[in-house]
Design a protein around this nucleic acid. Structure first.
Length: 584
DNA sequence: GCCGTTTTCGGCCCGACTGTTTTCAGTCG
């Protein structure tokens, strides 16, 4: 089992323990262990083989043993026994908002309920409302939770959440009572998917702000409406929380609710080492009872500075060692969206794109891009009207003609998204591939190969002399499809050795290669290109989602190929292997 | 279950909000 499979098991164990009424701190230890595993940068196989799991903070004897057993055998006896001891229907009841372990236990014990169906009947018959500790409102809330379970439980793409979040933030900022406003949480950290939205507002008069928030047009349900905190649910099922704090507390609250949890833990530990206590209320001497002597922070940068740290951008606050690095002044100057000067991997009507070569070029020019490049599908992607050798050569001619015509100030590069066939060979003739400016090699077929076969296949494609970059490394579709299994480290090493770029596919559903791999890969010398995989001109704007991924992966301008000028890109393509130039 | 310059036991964040309660328990973040 790999890291994320094992993390899933640890989280399931935590859920089961919760339903059994176990010690909450034990439960937290399992959840903490799962998070640690997900963000672990070292190779799990190495840690297990060398017996070094316990060196990771958060893994003790028990977790180290369980992780080892899961990794080596793919199963865990403890987990199987635990599962058998809990009614499975109770686990799914946890998805209903307002129902926690204690209430579920009571429902099971007092009314013998074993499934959501039985729970629904019991709510309707009135037996839930008459249970001690429950009431009419609770029963109604449970019923509505059951009906909307699917929409309420699901996560949302960052990109989709942004469409909801931006107007809310603008609305808040426009209110006269609002001094300052920001989003927070995983949305602000630019995670690829988010569970809910958080807004933090500075104001001395929260009431009218709360009123505005809960009365927005597309609010479907108000789940909390207090003096300083409110929660609403939008039509899409997305939940949003608003907290209003006095202006002096704003930076502290913003930092606290931006998280991540692990980042906050590390920050609090650092504060304690300096005799200070950090929370959403302020930064005060540990011995003080209240926050009247709290340090003053006009911005988050002041908080970091009080703790002797460089400012850490929200994207890097994942508890992956950023505090130690900030202490030594090592936080990089992260890539900015305005450094992008063009993009590769885009489709036109020649394959499955919706816009013509000219329409795409016009859009690129409007964006102020110096260049863009086509990468239509190759013939193996028959369903996408992929190009054969003859059509590729024809397209090269049209592109040359368009560039020569001087109609647009934006230069067009001729590329291809060439299929990597099952055995790792490429889908077009070598002469055709070498006639192009660049080649994006991608997997679209035979995606069910095993890990070692897929790894060999990708490395073979990387080693092809025509390959310039690798498209969407794992083929994942966020919230819908897992990527195919492969040994990322081996593929990354092969790409570096061959001077091949690995793209950040900036389609908000892909964001592949994942940000979690980038810091280490870029340190070793891997170059990326942020590619929108545009199938119509509007998709060029996906690049900003790819910039998020790059920033979360600690990348700066020098790591990103499409921050180069037109002249530099031309030079690199002339030598075929952009990454090799960089290694010199 | 984890952790340790109060180190092998006893802490581990805690406050806002809701609903059911007459003073608080459960959920959530």
């Amino acid at each position: 089992m790999n890291k994320s499979d094992i993390a899933d098991v640890l989280n399931e164990i935590a859920t089961l323990l919760e339903l059994k009424g176990e010690n909450p701190f034990k439960i937290r230890a399992y959840q903490n262990g799962a998070r640690k595993l997900e963000t672990l940068e070292s190779d799990l196989a190495d840690l297990v083989a060398e017996g070094r799991l316990k060196e990771v903070a958060g893994f003790g004897d028990a977790l180290a043993q369980k992780i080892t057993e899961l990794h080596e055998t793919g199963g865990l006896e403890f987990f199987e026994k635990l599962k058998a001891s809990v009614e499975p229907g109770l686990v799914s009841m946890l998805e209903i908002p307002g129902l926690g372990a204690k209430k579920i236990k009571a429902l099971h014990k007092e009314l013998g309920l074993k499934s959501i169906e039985e729970l629904k009947e019991a709510c309707e018959s009135g037996s839930v409302a008459s249970l001690k500790g429950f009431g009419k409102k609770t029963a109604e809330k449970i019923l509505s939770g059951i009906e909307n379970r699917e929409a309420y439980g699901k996560r949302h793409l960052w990109w989709d959440a942004r469409a909801v979040a931006e107007p809310v933030l603008e609305g808040l900022k426009a209110l006269p009572e609002v001094v300052e406003a920001s989003h927070a949480g995983s949305f602000r950290r630019k995670r690829e998917t988010v569970g809910d939205l958080d807004f933090i507002v500075a104001s001395e008069t929260p009431k009218p702000i709360m009123e505005w928030f809960v009365n927005q047009d597309d609010v479907k349900e108000v789940t909390a409406h207090g003096e300083t905190k409110s929660s609403v649910r939008f039509e899409s099922g997305l939940q949003a929380d608003l907290r209003v704090v006095p202006p002096a507390q704003f930076a502290f609250a913003l930092h606290h609710f931006t998280g991540s949890k692990d980042h906050n833990v590390a920050m609090r530990q650092r504060a304690l080492a300096k005799g200070l206590s950090l929370s959403e209320w302020g930064l005060k001497p540990v011995e003080d009872e209240d926050f009247s002597n709290s340090k003053i922070a006009k911005s988050e940068a002041d908080i970091f500075s009080c703790l002797g740290l460089e400012y850490v951008p929200p994207e890097l606050r994942e508890g992956m060692g950023e505090i130690e690095i900030a202490e030594n002044g090592g936080i990089p100057k992260l890539l900015r969206g305005d450094s992008i000067r063009g993009s590769f991997h885009n489709h036109t009507t020649a394959s499955d794109g919706r816009c013509s070569l000219e329409e795409m070029t016009e859009a690129a020019e409007t964006l102020g891009w110096e260049y863009w490049g086509t990468a239509d599908h190759s013939k193996a992607s028959f369903q996408a009207n992929g190009l054969d050798d003859a059509r590729v050569l024809e397209q090269i001619k049209s592109i040359e003609a368009l560039n020569d015509s001087g109609r647009f100030s934006t230069h067009v590069f001729a590329g291809i998204e060439c299929d990597i066939l099952g055995d790792g060979t490429l889908d077009l003739a070598d002469e055709t591939l070498m006639a192009l400016d660049y080649v994006v090699a991608s997997v679209h077929i035979s995606m069910t190969q095993g890990e070692s076969e897929m790894t060999k296949r990708l490395i073979r494609a990387i080693e092809h002399p025509a390959t310039t970059m690798l498209g969407h490394l794992t083929g994942r579709i966020l919230l819908r499809r897992e990527g195919y299994k492969l040994d990322v480290a081996k593929v990354v090493d092969a790409a570096i050795a061959n001077g091949v770029i690995i793209e950040i596919n900036a389609n908000p559903r892909r964001l592949d290669m994942d940000w979690r791999f980038w810091r280490q890969a870029a340190d070793k010398g891997l170059l990326t290109s942020i590619n929108p995989d545009a199938h119509r001109a509007e998709h060029f704007k996906f690049v900003s989602a790819g910039v998020n991924t790059a920033r979360k992966g600690w990348l700066s301008e020098k790591h990103v190929f499409n921050t180069l000028s037109l002249a530099e890109v031309k030079q690199a393509f002339a030598r075929r292997r952009p990454g090799l130039d960089r290694l010199k």
